[in-house]
Design a protein around this nucleic acid. Structure first.
Length: 436
DNA sequence: TCTCCTAACACTTTTGAATTGT
DNA sequence: AACAATTCAAAAGTGTTAGGAG
């Protein structure tokens, strides 16, 4: 069976988004449809990657703008129901590890971002229903700022501390199984645990770039793919879950979050109370170091097999044993936009999903002077095809920031596309144990 | 002085190749 | 010979911490 990962093991999975053009409109008039085309794009270059996705493509109807994010989604506010942009009627998404997310959200989720890129924990893991089993879809994830503020930790709580930094180029992470059939996606939950966040604006690996001390929210997009590089696609559905809002940090600020992470993340097992890397044991090690060589390894911290935090229960079975009572989160009623000839392409959506959703006007404008990092190590054959996305709909803050540096459309997850996949077995690999 | 960031560290889990058994 | 199960080492993912930059 066709799969880009098999055909191109070195391909990347995340797609950098192109800058929009200034002057975006908040509606989405049919006249703008042409704006989503890329006159200078040699689409045939991409056909090798996503060709033959759907034999009978049909023109996408114009999707309505994504409802605006609330200005604040802190733990103190009651989370509104997930909202979705929809031109895929009947399709719904539910957050599989919702309870875990809620635990973190109640405290105020923080996500570490590092120069090298750090995974999200908890990761976004969703199950999808209502897809056409035969059709092919792309699963995407991006992270957008929630508001226009920078935050600081005040010992007990987070509070706004000035204006947000200028927005960075949007990047989208494409699930490595994409494109896959609806049956494939519905077979088991879809995990985005390999997504990495970075604070390096020159990140060459294609990780999602965030500012530290800012509030963000992940979004998941489902694109019915026809041909990625044509102007035809089969529709799009975008979802967000209020409990997945987080503040990006370079070091944890809230000790309660640290404890939750240690308790829930298997990789942090060593820091649990009974782990060999727990504080007590670390202190003891330091003491012994100062006093002299260690005679014998100690079991002071107890067995490592002692049951740990919530994440233990997700190891090797969380996906399969997902709680059946976690019914799909209700979403907004699917809208049926009027047909639109020459509508936006799947490619355009990949390049700039925000343009299809609209972006809250209170969000900071993208930094117009931001220069995209070159990718010295990856002069991919596609790198020459630089594109600029035409303005999207939806009162986007983008339109206030003129595009200076266009992005290569294939700069997926940084650097010219293609880039390495995270490796076999990721995400929907039935053969590997899901971590989260 | 304070806030934020970085890199090194020790620990854990994951992954895949090699080996062994059926 | 083919397949499955097991073993093992390397790679990758964790939070902690000391030190540095602004």
């Amino acid at each position: 069976m066709y799969h880009p990962r098999e055909l191109y093991p070195s391909l990347g999975t995340g797609y950098r988004l192109g800058h929009p053009q200034p002057g975006a409109d908040s509606s989405f008039p049919p006249a703008l449809a042409e704006g989503y085309r890329y006159p200078d794009l040699d689409t045939s270059k991409l056909d090798c990657f996503l060709s033959g996705i759907e034999t009978a493509p049909h023109t996408l109807s114009a999707p309505p703008p994504l409802p605006l994010l609330p200005p604040s989604l802190g733990p103190e506010t009651a989370p509104p129901p997930p909202e979705a942009l929809h031109s895929l009627p009947g399709v719904s998404l539910s957050l599989e590890n919702q309870e875990l997310w809620k635990e973190f959200s109640a405290v105020g989720t923080e996500m570490i971002i590092t120069k090298a890129g750090r995974r999200m924990f908890p990761a976004c893991r969703v199950s999808v229903t209502g897809l056409d089993p035969e059709a092919r879809y792309l699963f995407l994830l991006d992270v957008v700022p929630v508001d226009g503020a920078r935050y600081r930790w005040q010992g007990q709580h987070w509070e706004p501390s000035g204006k947000a930094e200028p927005r960075l180029p949007d990047r989208v992470y494409i699930h490595p199984d994409s494109p896959a059939t609806g049956a494939h996606w519905m077979r088991q939950p879809v995990s985005f645990h390999r997504v990495k966040l970075t604070n390096s604006t020159l990140d060459p690996h294609g990780h999602l770039i965030l500012h530290s001390m800012h509030k963000y929210q992940p979004r998941i997009h489902l694109v019915r793919a026809t041909q990625l590089c044509s102007q035809h696609w089969g529709g799009v559905a975008s979802f967000r879950f209020p409990e997945t809002t987080f503040i990006s940090v370079t070091a944890y600020q809230n000790p309660r979050i640290t404890q939750l992470k240690i308790a829930a993340n298997p990789f942090a097992k060593g820091f649990r109370e009974n782990g060999r890397n727990c504080k007590r044991e670390r202190d003891a090690r330091v003491k012994r170091k100062l006093q002299g060589p260690e005679p014998v390894a100690t079991e002071a911290c107890g067995s490592a097999d002692t049951p740990g935090g919530p994440c233990d229960s997700t190891l090797g079975g969380d996906i399969r044993d997902s709680d059946p009572e976690q019914a799909p989160v209700p979403r907004e009623a699917a809208s049926t936009p009027a047909p639109l000839c020459g509508g936006p392409s799947a490619e355009a959506y990949l390049l700039h999903p925000a343009a299809f959703h609209g972006v809250p006007s209170h969000l900071p404008a993208r930094n117009p002077s931001f220069a995209e990092a070159p990718d010295p190590g990856r002069p991919a054959p596609y790198s020459a095809a630089f594109l600029e996305l035409q303005p999207g709909p939806g009162g986007s803050a983008y339109h206030t920031a003129p595009s200076v540096t266009p992005f290569a459309p294939h700069l997926i997850q940084g650097g010219p596309f293609p880039l390495p996949y995270p490796g076999p077995g990721g995400y929907l690999d039935m053969g590997s144990k899901p971590m989260y």
